[in-house]
């Protein structure tokens, strides 16, 4: 087993194990911290796949932004004094069956389908390529995404603002 194979299996264990904790844990705080491991593990996958820029973005936005927001959400929606941050599940058994079915279906597709054959991407720095793509081919989505962020900011502020302005 080569080093990269070893790293892959370690990462796969981390990602799936922590994702299972996220979903099954009864404690919200545990879920949030397990999610940290999942996001970090996925960033590790990106490194293995040669997507260095995306790995950095994953760390900065997911771990540094989205996860912090989610932890805020957990903290603010539970009184801190009762440490019992329980989260109940409903219909766990049918849910498990659905999830298992979806997994079987997706795995069958993933392993049997002859995916598009191409040259692949050799492991090389991607930042310059992505920068060029953003200001070239993907200029319109790049600009549109900035409008999306502006609108989401306005919207989130509007929703939580307590006082109504006359």
């Amino acid at each position: 087993m080569t080093a990269s194979a070893f790293v892959f299996w370690v990462l796969a264990t981390i990602v799936l194990g922590s994702a299972a904790v996220v979903v099954l844990s009864r404690s919200l705080i545990n879920s949030a911290f397990a999610l940290l491991a999942t996001f970090a593990g996925v960033a590790g996958f990106y490194v293995l796949l040669g997507a260095d820029f995306l790995a950095a973005v994953q760390f900065l936005v997911y771990v540094g932004g989205i996860l912090i927001l989610l932890v805020f959400g957990v903290m603010l929606t539970h009184r801190i004094q009762d440490l019992d941050l329980r989260a109940e599940a409903r219909q766990l058994v049918p849910g498990l069956f659905v999830a298992a079915g979806v997994f079987a279906l997706l795995t069958a597709v993933a392993t049997r389908t002859p995916w598009a054959q191409g040259p692949g991407r050799e492991l090389s720095a991607t930042t310059a390529d992505i920068g060029r793509a953003f200001l070239g081919k993907y200029l319109l989505p790049f600009e549109a995404a900035s409008i999306l962020l502006l609108v989401a900011l306005i919207g989130a502020a509007l929703i939580v603002r307590k006082r109504e302005d006359a």
């Binding site: 799936l16 409903r90 997706l106 392993t111």
Partner: peptide, 19 residues
């Protein structure tokens, strides 16, 4: 792809079972 399929299924499980 298989790891991703498992992750998707776990995410779906969380979405449908968590209150």
């Amino acid at each position: 792809l298989v790891v991703s399929a498992a992750l998707f299924a776990l995410g779906l499980l969380g979405l449908i079972t968590r209150r």
